[in-house]
């Protein structure tokens, strides 16, 4: 604590220009918080995993996100050599944006087998990824999948009616653009390299990376100047649940 902070702590009633705002917190212990701890403790006691293993995977989960994937595509748009590398050796290209797919165990995560391919969109072909079986996703480079990606509704429908599902995300593709749905699995992960949009001439890597959102890398959106956020979709229950 600095001298300044120390004094501040003892002078709560004066006006000053260095407001310290404390973000609000949930000041209540919830059943779910308690359940997560209880479950974890029991798993460790029963030897399902160790506390060290849990910490390793939790740290991994805390540091992953879509930033390296956006950076990879932005760099590929600017550098033809890097683009070639990304499309021929996606693991090597990942390393150049700080992602080692062997982390955190030396063999990748349990559900992220070390086989990764980047799918290039062209004016004639649009790619979109799914995991029809469960929710396989290129987590090391793209972070955790969004909730809708995990739902049976998306998984089942995107492979059957891709154009209809894409239109629900606001992406309507011309009929002469072929849509390819790539099904991820435990042995292979994919990510989309979208086309660089018009209106981005002269942009830096940082500027380009900002518009390459997670949704663009899944293939349910196209990079658009001025758009830096993902689409928010309401997760709807399946009309015909799997029980039927």
């Amino acid at each position: 604590m600095t001298e300044h902070d120390h004094n501040h702590d003892h002078n709560h009633n004066h006006d000053h220009d260095h407001d310290r705002t404390i973000k609000p917190m949930v000041d209540e212990i919830t059943d779910f918080e308690v359940l997560e701890i209880a479950l974890r403790e029991l798993c460790i006691e029963k030897g399902l995993f160790t506390a060290a293993e849990h910490r390793l995977f939790t740290e991994f989960a805390e540091q992953i996100g879509p930033t390296p994937a956006a950076r990879l595509v932005a760099r590929a748009w600017l550098d033809p050599d890097f683009k070639r590398l990304a499309l021929t050796d996606a693991l090597a290209a990942s390393k150049q944006v700080g992602v080692d797919w062997l982390e955190p165990t030396g063999f990748g995560t349990p559900s992220d087998f070390v086989a990764f391919k980047i799918l290039e969109n062209t004016p004639a072909v649009h790619n979109v990824i799914v995991c029809a079986l469960c929710s396989c996703y290129p987590r090391p480079i793209l972070g955790n999948s969004p909730e809708w990606y995990r739902t049976p509704n998306y998984r089942r429908r995107i492979v059957r009616w891709p154009r209809q599902v894409l239109s629900e995300f606001g992406l309507v593709l011309p009929d002469d653009v072929e849509v390819r749905v790539e099904d991820s699995n435990q042995k292979h992960r994919f990510m989309v390299m979208p086309l660089r949009p018009e209106g981005t001439d002269g942009w830096t890597e940082d500027q380009l990376a900002e518009i390459i959102t997670r949704d663009c890398l899944i293939g349910v959106a196209l990079p658009t100047p001025g758009v830096t956020t993902n689409i928010i979709t309401k997760t709807r229950p399946a009309i015909r649940p799997i029980a039927n």
Binding site: V26, F49, E53, L56, E59, A61, P110, S111
Partner: peptide, 25 residues
Amino acid sequence: KYGVENPVPPWKTSLDGMCDAIDRS
């Protein structure tokens, strides 16, 4: 209720860690 903006609860990454640890073992 508390005006918190985080989209996911603080225990989510620990749950992810637990799922990965279980998947592995």
